[in-house]
Design a protein around this nucleic acid. Structure first.
Lengths: 182, 182
DNA sequence: AGCCTGATATATCGGCCCGATACATTCGCG
DNA sequence: CGCGAATGTATCGGGCCGATATATCAGGCT
């Protein structure tokens, strides 16, 4: 049976303790979101599929009057997760609108490319802040891997911000005196 | 009118000279693919939409007996492209299955995490090679921005490969008893 | 000449996935 | 006590990928 990486995100998130779909979404938003996001529109149907396939098991766990189902990983679910972890990763994609705009910046007057780089840099610094805010939480756990990944994210975004700064500094000079409306 | 970033990729690709859908796809695959991909399933319908909106104009340009349509940007198309370039970028997403596996590597025996990092490093080194192969082409053009972006991609992938190497070297030792962090 | 492969060119389809939204309940706080 | 925020489940439109289908054309090989 072929599962999407998002299915394995879910499997991983319930691998330590049972979780509701809502909790899974919150966990993803607070951790893997930066390199693998997931929406409710995927999570709930995927949980049902995983339950049908016997990789997780749904358990009624109401809080008060509100219905609530938590999903626990099964033995074959754990096996599927480990098998997947042992395969070499294959999906790597990025959608970076900033780089896209920079790529086409030649159609703008020369000075305006700098604004794109500044936006990109600001964005990266913002991400660094958000990641740093998460760090204390990751430090508490005994599993070291989320922390390694998180710190990698911080380093990457700092590197990226630095690159933007450097590129802004060595942008091609606007050639000679060319007056333009301001 | 609201256009997707992919629509602007197309607009950008035809902004210097008219191109067929096939050519646009080839251009994207040889340049923006690494930070903004596009498939035929998007390009052809999007070209029709852009033509209806008057941002590009379709021109018959058969080669021999085979039908062929090239699309040229219009004045309002160029305006739309410039307007978009002046807005701050908003879409930034990444899907990195390697980081995802590393994130969950705690469910594997300790030594196996190194294999994930090695796969990731190999992948990045492969991308570096592919980008370097493109570099000569980008050097020929007079537009400096594609080259800036390309070199940024090379630097990034080298940085990433180095990070994988460093992390592999400081992976938690498999030996001894479990320790509590604090 | 005929054949095969690969490039050119357009189009479609299943399925993944996002963002937004809807709705109901329950908790925390002033 | 009341109200907004958080919890919990679910759905829908649309973007987008990857694979595939069809057809023509150019080149090299036999």
């Amino acid at each position: 049976m072929e599962l999407s990486p998002t299915a394995y995100v879910i499997l991983g998130m319930v691998s330590r303790e049972p979780r509701s779909g809502y909790e899974i979404k919150a966990l993803v938003d607070g951790s893997t979101r930066f390199f693998w996001a997931a929406s409710y529109g995927q999570i709930y149907p995927e949980l049902k599929r995983l339950a049908e396939a016997g990789l997780v098991k749904g358990l009624d766990a109401p809080r008060g009057e509100r219905k609530r189902t938590v999903y626990a990983i099964t033995a074959s679910g754990k096996e599927a997760l480990r098998d997947w972890l042992r395969q070499p990763p294959s999906t790597y994609e990025t959608r970076d609108e900033g780089l896209l705009k920079l790529f086409f910046a030649g159609v703008l007057p020369p000075t305006e490319a700098a604004a794109i780089l500044r936006s990109m840099r600001e964005h990266r610094l913002g991400v660094v802040e958000r990641l740093r805010a998460i760090e204390p939480t990751a430090l508490e756990k005994e599993d070291p891997f989320p922390l390694i990944v998180l710190r990698g994210g911080i380093e990457f975004n700092e590197w990226y911000a630095g690159w933007c700064e450097r590129m802004e500094g060595q942008l091609p000079e606007p050639t000679a005196t060319k007056k333009r409306s301001s």
